[in-house]
Amino acid sequence: MHEDDHDCSPSCGAALAFAADGGPPETPHVATLLDGLPDNWDRWGDDDERGTLNLLGSAEAAAGMRAALAGGDDAIERFTLGLPLTGEAIPEGSTATGDPAFPGRDVSRRDNTSDERAYREGERDPSAGMKFSDDRFSTPFYLQGTTHMDALGHAWYGDYLYNGFDADATAATKRFDTPVEGFDGKVAETRGHANASIAPLADAGVAGRGVLLDVARHRDDGDDTRLPMGAEITLDDLQTTADAQGVTVAERDILLVRTGSMGHTRDPEAAWNPTDEPGLAFSEELVEWVHDRDIAALGADNVAIERVTQRIDGETYVLPLHGAFLRNLGLPLVEMLWLDDLAAACTEDGIYEFLLTAAPLHIQRATGGPTNPVVLKATDGD
């Protein structure tokens, strides 16, 4: 792996009181933790910005299609995995229902700019009798505030992003010829990613064989379908779940891990805390397993894929797998998936493989993009 001894700052709002006592966590340098683990730098050329999406070609799309067609032309179910945007905010630790918001990303709310009231009250005139409704966001719309794919440059440590791009590429300034009105006046200049943005992943798209590992159902340390807050998912949990489901995680698969956490955000009886969600736990074996299988993309139904803070060898780390997966392997992460409906269907017919397609919104220079993945899954038809 490419070593780096420079200082870094936690990403994703990690400085926002993640420690249980409300104080800042200890921050040993993650470079030491990840030293010696695999990376994919230069594997697809020194200018590559697509990472493991390079693994998805015609054969991988065909494998997904075969999975979808395994029950025949008349036995295909369709699922979308994107969360609805309700605009409802959930106070941390409460049992309110609404949109999950990671610290630093407020819930987004939209409002109408045109509707029947506007025509009725004379604010707008019909065009040859035709009327139209329209809307816009009235609060900041955080691109990673709902179901989304992380750009490969979204998280890093030291002075380098995925594939050796300079970390200063995350703060490249662009001036626009025509200013437009923003929340705080005219916007004529912004900062964004010159490299490793979401745009190359949007260009590539995702299409391949997806596999769901429903750890929440098979580990059985919460209720029937959800892991408790604070639960950590190990490599052994993934392998045990795959065995219980009778499914194999093959090379170049798209792996989805279900914790049940997003179900808490839609359940008025369940408390939810974004910084204490269940999620993957770092281990060298997990990183090597993901690398050895050339997992093409990784998604989960929580806000960060992994546990936000993790105790490893007596030290506290913040999102270490983001460093291992995004920065080192170039592995796109898809967060805040809605997996409950898909999981229920998989449980009913015992089929946990499918065709998965997805693409984030193509937003130039962005650190992530909202997405609504589509699954086509075979069913036994009963």
Rank of each mutant, 00 (worst) to 15 (best):
D106E: 11
D106S: 12
V107Q: 04
S108R: 00
S108V: 09
S108W: 04
R109N: 05
R109K: 05
R110V: 15
N112W: 12
S114L: 13
R117Q: 10
Y119N: 07
Y119E: 07
R120L: 15
E121S: 14
G122R: 03
G122H: 01
E123Q: 12
R124H: 09
R124T: 00
P126D: 08
P126K: 01
A128W: 14
M130I: 10
M130E: 13
K131E: 15
D134W: 01
D134N: 12
D134P: 03
D135S: 14
F137V: 12
S138W: 09
T139A: 05
T139W: 03
P140F: 05
P140V: 08
F141T: 12
Y142E: 13
Y142A: 14
Q144Y: 14
G145W: 03
G145D: 08
T147M: 01
T147A: 04
T147E: 03
H148L: 05
D150G: 11
L152K: 02
G153K: 02
G153Y: 04
H154W: 07
H154S: 15
H154E: 10
W156T: 13
W156A: 11
Y157I: 14
Y157H: 15
G158V: 04
D159Q: 14
Y162C: 12
N163L: 00
N163C: 05
G164Q: 01
A167H: 03
D168G: 10
D168C: 05
A169K: 06
A169S: 15
A169Q: 12
A169G: 15
T170V: 14
A171V: 13
A171T: 13
T173C: 14
K174H: 12
K174R: 11
R175M: 15
F176K: 03
D177I: 10
T178R: 09
E181D: 14
E181V: 07
D184T: 06
D184S: 06
G185C: 02
A188E: 06
A188N: 02
E189L: 09
T190C: 09
R191S: 11
H193V: 14
A196P: 09
A199G: 14
A199R: 05
P200L: 07
L201E: 02
A202I: 02
A202L: 04
D203T: 04
D203Y: 09
A204T: 00
V206I: 11
V206T: 06
V206F: 05
A207R: 01
A207M: 08
G208Y: 00
R209V: 05
R209Y: 03
G210V: 01
G210F: 01
G210S: 03
V211Q: 01
V211F: 04
L212S: 08
L212A: 07
L213G: 00
D214H: 01
D214E: 01
V215P: 04
V215K: 00
V215N: 02
R217I: 07
H218Q: 10
D221P: 06
D223Y: 00
R226H: 03
P228N: 07
P228M: 05
M229C: 08
G230N: 08
A231R: 04
E232Y: 03
E232P: 07
I233P: 00
I233N: 00
L235S: 07
D236L: 11
D237T: 03
Q239G: 13
Q239C: 15
T240G: 15
T240V: 15
T240Y: 09
T240S: 14
T240D: 14
